[in-house]
Computed example of a mutant assay.
Amino acid sequence: MGFWDFIIGTKKRQVEKFLNKGAVILDVRTQREWDKGHIEDSVHIPLDELNNRVEELKQLNKPIIACCQSGVRSAKAAKFLNLHNIEATNGGGWVSLKEKL
């Protein structure tokens, strides 16, 4: 098993763990990106709106799997949510996350 296989496998296990806890998928891409396609039943809050809408996510009382286009913005979102006492992980790009679901 190579390094990247290990990283990808770790992320997949983390996503599975969160899904087993009833996690919500949070898409932090822009409205324009969202309109081109997204994971069914995911919550859409663009990254630049997250600070003002964090209470909405707290009210869900569920873990969060953040996704975006490539995984960069979702990593920022997961870190931000964890700092606000919301259990969150970076699900990476939405297309690859959709394949894991």
Rank of each mutant, 00 (worst) to 15 (best):
I8H: 12
S42Y: 02
G93H: 02
I45A: 03
V54C: 00
C67M: 09
L47H: 07
K98G: 09
W34V: 06
G2K: 09
N82S: 10
E16L: 10
N82V: 07
V72P: 00
F80C: 08
V95Q: 14
G9H: 01
E87P: 05
D41H: 11
E99W: 11
S70F: 10
K21I: 06
G92V: 01
G22C: 05
L26M: 05
N52W: 10
R13W: 11
G91C: 05
K12R: 15
S74V: 03
N52T: 06
L97D: 09
R73A: 03
V72K: 10
L83D: 14
S42L: 06
Q14N: 13
S96F: 11
N51I: 12
G71A: 07
R13I: 13
Q14W: 08
A23M: 07
K100D: 12
D48S: 06
V28F: 02
G9C: 01
E16S: 10
S74N: 06
L81K: 00
A77K: 00
K17A: 15
L26E: 06
N20P: 02
I7T: 08
K62C: 04
L81I: 00
V24D: 08
A75F: 11
G92E: 08
A78P: 02
G92H: 08
T30E: 09
F18Q: 09
D5Y: 04
S96R: 13
V95N: 08
L97R: 07
R13Y: 07
